[in-house]
Amino acid sequence: MTSANVDPAAAPLTAASAGGSASGRRHAGLTRRLVPYGYLSPTMLLLTVLMVVPIVMVIGYSFRDNVIVNKNPVFAGLVNYAKVLTDADFLAALQNTAVFISVSTAAHLVLGLTFAMMLNTKLLGGITKAVFRIVYILPWLFTIAVIAVIWRLLLDPAGVVNYVLQTLGLIQDGVSWLGEPGTALWAVTFANIWSGYPFFMISLLAALQGISADLYEAAAVDGTNWLQRFVHVTLPQLRPVIISMAVLDLIWTSQQFALIWMMTGGGPLNSTEMLSTYTYKQAFSEYEFATASAAAVIVLLLTAALAFFYVRQQREQ
């Protein structure tokens, strides 16, 4: 499942102990067995404090009335969950997140695969391809805060995107892409597509280079054309990588906060509200830490469902 799983054939070093009295040997054996935990102790300490404790805390918060603000919060049962799940803003956020992550992931896949295949061509020289590869990876190297300001600049009503579209005659007047409920979600999705495809591209390029040339030669001997080779050789070979990348991308994109927060803040009129921005606002704008915690737990459960699918998929391979 993971690269951290080492092959079981490797000899355990713990068996190497020898000599000394019976009790001394037992003592040495115990110490020896504790050695790996010693190496792991900083990691376990950090992950306990930074992962286990916070998750227990947030679950605890979600069942109480207003925590953090209230000094002595009392048990409130499922009140917070009922409040969140019946909140129209939350449901809008859920729907927006679904659109945002599915469109982003689909576009990342299509662009990533197209670019990876163009970069994998035998028709061009190595240097040309290397230059294009760097250009294609560039969007991924900028932090999300930078991506957000670039696209706010480009999509400004007086910005260069509107100028180009007007010059081409595609629109009449300048569109306020981020200011209108009808276009804002598509605008942030577009910015996210632009910033996220390179990761797919890099992984798919590596996978493409791993496909044996024999498969293509055999297909060519059978007289297949380019499209047939793509459908019958390339896609089946890439399938495992595509599926795992897609699930990971759905998970990562659902966690996107900075881009939305800096481009639209969830507006206008909730049109770009995501589960992440909704949770953040509940906590740090409304100071409703208990409902924020309930929303945070729901987000965690949704992610766990996706992760479960991912792990099962990895096992099948």
């Binding site: 947030v58 953090i68 737990v297 996706l306």
Partner: peptide, 12 residues
């Protein structure tokens, strides 16, 4: 895969 937004409230 744990969402940062889930952690941010207890971290605070």
């Amino acid at each position: 895969v744990v969402p940062p937004i889930t952690l941010v409230v207890p971290y605070f």
